[in-house]
């Protein structure tokens, strides 16, 4: 263990000359990185806002006055409000089971939780059509009982949950693994109930990771397009989420409107990133402890 030495080395001023590249190379690499990011990330983002405001603010706000736009906003909020808490509870439960206990087949379980990450969004939507569609596995049963799943809010929620399924669990598992079980054990031996130990020991330890992952999960839940597009049915004012509304406006040659609604979603993305950066900046220590970058 070389605790003291490591810390000192980290605090000492870095002799740049030997462990960094020459000034020219530094400039070149920085230039390449910034140019690349500008071309691929910043420019598309600016395009969204530029196009949205192409005809001024009045036209911009007109896009949100439409009842269809409002109902799309409402639906998107509803879907996120159901799917994010669901994934939150699942993520915490899964992380607790995986991080705090040893059991066989753990890595298989983690891989399965990861799976929705690498499944094409289109496939994510389609599988629910195959299960709940009227040609599907349980389709006849639900139709008999008058329950509409696909092409209604439940289907959209399910597809969204699937797509965002790993977000919170995958953030919490390594965080909680790294923190180990010592603190909880201490609390328990001191007489706290399990739930109490979770609330007062575990939760404070993972709070920033939790908040961060909830934010990202929320951004993705509100922005999902491919999967939702397959199960939505595109009924105006009923099953259109914001991203689908963008597509509809775009297909109605209402480009300003499409980009205006898109800018709302882009704004959401920006807010997410800003909060995330602020969290990282203010709580760098806590986050680093949890393995955040």
């Amino acid at each position: 263990m070389s605790e003291g030495i490591t810390l000192e080395a980290a605090a000492a001023p870095r002799p740049r000359s030997v462990i960094s590249e020459g000034r020219g190379v530094r400039w070149l690499l920085t230039g390449i990185a910034i140019l690349f990011l500008a071309l691929f990330l910043v420019l598309p983002l600016l395009t969204v806002f530029a196009q949205a405001l192409a005809r001024g603010w009045a036209a911009y706000f007109e896009a949100f006055a439409e009842p269809d736009a409002r109902s799309a906003i409402r639906l998107t909020l509803t879907v996120a409000a159901i799917s994010v808490p669901f994934n939150l509870v699942f993520g915490v439960a899964a992380a607790w089971a995986i991080a705090k206990f040893e059991f066989p087949g753990k890595s298989l379980l983690i891989t399965l939780i990861d799976l929705p990450f690498s499944v094409s969004p289109v496939v994510s939507g389609m599988i629910y059509v195959l299960v709940f569609g009227s040609q599907g596995l349980f389709g006849a049963f639900f139709i008999e009982h008058g329950i509409q799943i696909i092409f209604a809010v439940p289907g959209i929620v399910l597809a969204t949950i699937f797509v965002t399924f790993p977000f919170i669990a995958r953030e919490l598992i390594p965080l909680m693994q790294e923190q180990g079980t010592a603190e909880e054990e201490a609390a328990l031996t001191l007489g706290a109930s399990g739930w109490h130990a979770f609330r007062t020991v575990t939760l404070p330890n993972i709070r920033w990771g939790l908040l961060y992952s909830v934010l990202l999960c929320n951004a993705r839940a509100m922005g999902e397009f491919g999967a939702v597009s397959v199960v939505s049915g595109h009924i105006r004012g009923l099953t259109n989420t914001l991203p689908l509304h963008v597509e509809i406006l775009y297909n109605e040659y209402n480009f300003v409107g499409a980009f205006a609604v898109a800018s709302l979603l882009a704004g959401l993305a920006l807010v997410t990133l800003v909060i995330k950066s602020v969290l990282e900046w203010r709580y760098a220590g806590d986050l680093a402890a949890g393995g955040r970058h």
């Binding site: 922005g223 914001l242 991203p243 775009y250 979603l265 882009a266 993305a269 997410t272 990133l273």
Partner: peptide, 14 residues
């Protein structure tokens, strides 16, 4: 992190 948070349809039209 923008592509994580930006909806894909928005990215597409942009």
């Amino acid at each position: 992190d923008l592509p994580f948070a930006l909806p894909t349809a928005v990215a597409g039209i942009a």
